[in-house]
Computed example of a mutant assay.
Amino acid sequence: MSTKLTRPKRVGIGARPPANPHAEAWIRQGDAATVQKADLYTARLTLDITPALRARIKVSAFTQGVTVAELLRGMLEREFPPENTP
């Protein structure tokens, strides 16, 4: 009994569809937000904290609907307002 192998048909890839200008603008809008954030926050601060404290911070940020970075920046801004700078 012989088994005949058949090659699958080749499917050509068509031309790329035209870009949706609304989608392109939405994508570029995200790039602009990243650039603005990078301009505002240029220093990195590293802290060693316990896993339990990290978990509490993450839960608090989640329940407030913000990122951990946003939560901590807000806390630091309240604790160290600009008028306290030397």
Rank of each mutant, 00 (worst) to 15 (best):
R44S: 15
T67L: 03
V68C: 07
K4S: 13
P86C: 03
E79I: 06
R16H: 11
V59A: 11
A23G: 05
D31K: 06
R28L: 11
R78I: 01
A61S: 02
T3I: 13
L40N: 06
E79S: 11
V59W: 01
M1R: 12
F62I: 12
I13Q: 15
V35L: 13
S60K: 14
R7Y: 02
S60I: 08
K37M: 05
R28T: 01
P51I: 04
R54Y: 05
A33Q: 01
G30V: 00
R78V: 01
P81D: 00
K58F: 01
T42Y: 00
L71Y: 10
A69E: 15
T67G: 09
P21M: 02
M75Q: 11
I57M: 07
Y41G: 06
H22N: 01
L5V: 11
R16W: 06
Q29S: 12
T46C: 05
K4R: 14
E83M: 03
P8A: 10
Q64I: 07
R7K: 12
L53R: 04
L40A: 15
G30F: 00
L72T: 01
E83D: 15
G14A: 15
L53W: 00
A69C: 08
M1L: 13
G12T: 13
A69K: 08
A52V: 03
T85C: 01
M75W: 10
E83R: 06
P51N: 12
V11R: 12
L53P: 02
R54W: 03
L45F: 11
Q36M: 09
P86M: 00
T34L: 12
T63Y: 07
T63R: 15
G30Q: 02
I57H: 03
T46P: 00
N84W: 09
A55I: 01
M75A: 15
G12S: 08
T3M: 07
R44C: 05
G12M: 14
T34R: 13
A69P: 03
L5R: 13
P81H: 02
P18R: 04
